[in-house]
């Protein structure tokens, strides 16, 4: 059995006295996955990633990264902050040289240069003169250059145009596949992640709502259309809505469904939205045992 890339146990983070950004989060992410952390703005995605990167200390619970305390795993983890902070007074080339200097022994200059080169960036240009997309590229180059085993990306593609997004995502996935890197990236745009990710972590209201392999999660849910008044009580209901004489619902069936119900598999976006619309819907976070068995 391999060590999970990311593992949280009753993890919680409070800012100030009473506002919990994240509370009672438990999940396990197997190594080698590409995981989407999805949720509305302010759901706690950034807090979760910062906790994993060792930038914040948890208020309660624990988080382990590659089997170690986040502080001990620092050199094996890459992180790109939402705001893509970089030193504005340095040039692109200087920024990469700094990356080489600060990551002695595990810096991959070729990868870093390749990421930057794709953006048609003048290495002598200062960071402050770059566009948002170009900054993202340099920030990604720094994160990938250190050849991380786990890459944490907070809204990495937010300020990229569709073309650059597609190209960078391709590059990212290529690097991840080539080195077996586990990637965790957050976004509030589900469609952005659907093609590249195989694992989902849905965060809402500071809690983990869904966690698991995307295919498994989709298979566990069914969108049903049934006559109004149909009894859903036997199943876990995520969302149900009655329009006229028809009932439409997303459920986790706990047994065979009546033949007169029309059933379809929901799309990922469909599933995510139905959970976000219904904060009271029961969370689905497979117990660690089942997850391990699936690895």
């Amino acid at each position: 059995m391999t060590v999970p890339a990311l593992e949280a146990d009753a993890l919680g983070k409070r800012f100030g006295r009473r506002s919990w950004a994240l509370r009672d989060c438990s999940f396990r992410l197997p190594a080698g996955r590409v995981c989407a952390v999805v949720g509305p703005n302010g759901a706690g995605k950034s807090t979760l990633l910062a906790l994993a990167a060792g930038l914040l200390a948890p208020t309660e619970g624990t988080v382990r990264v590659l089997g170690a305390h986040p502080a001990a795993a620092r050199s094996r983890v890459g992180f790109v902050d939402q705001d893509k902070p970089l030193y504005p007074q340095l040039t692109v080339a200087e920024t990469l040289r700094m990356g080489a200097d600060l990551n002695p022994g595990h810096w991959d200059a070729d990868t870093a240069r390749r990421v930057v080169a794709g953006g048609d960036l003048d290495p002598d240009r200062r960071i402050r003169a770059l566009s948002g997309g170009q900054r993202t590229r340099v920030a990604l180059a720094l994160a990938l250059g250190k050849r991380p085993e786990l890459l944490l990306l907070d809204e990495p593609m937010a300020d990229l145009d569709p073309l650059a997004r597609h190209e960078l995502m391709g590059l990212l996935m290529g690097e991840a596949a080539a080195h077996g890197t586990t990637v965790v990236m957050s976004s509030h745009v589900v469609a952005e992640l659907e093609d590249s990710c195989d694992h989902l972590l849905l965060v809402g209201g500071g809690k983990i709502r869904l966690s698991g392999d995307i295919d498994d999660l989709l298979a566990a849910h069914t969108r049903v259309t049934a006559p109004a008044g149909a009894d859903l009580a036997a199943h876990e209901v995520v969302e149900s809505r009655t329009t006229g004489r028809q009932l439409s619902a997303v459920i986790r069936p706990s047994g065979p469904l009546p033949d007169d119900w029309r059933t379809t598999t929901p799309s990922l976006e469909d599933l995510v939205l139905s959970y976000l619309r219904n904060p009271a819907a029961p969370a689905l976070t497979p117990a660690p045992e089942t997850l391990e068995a699936a690895v």
Binding site: S75, P85, L142
Partner: peptide
């Protein structure tokens, strides 16, 4: 303020 401290902390500098 700008977050470059966090950048440094995730670039192999504790």
């Amino acid at each position: 303020e700008s977050g470059t401290a966090r950048l440094a902390w995730t670039q192999g500098v504790s």
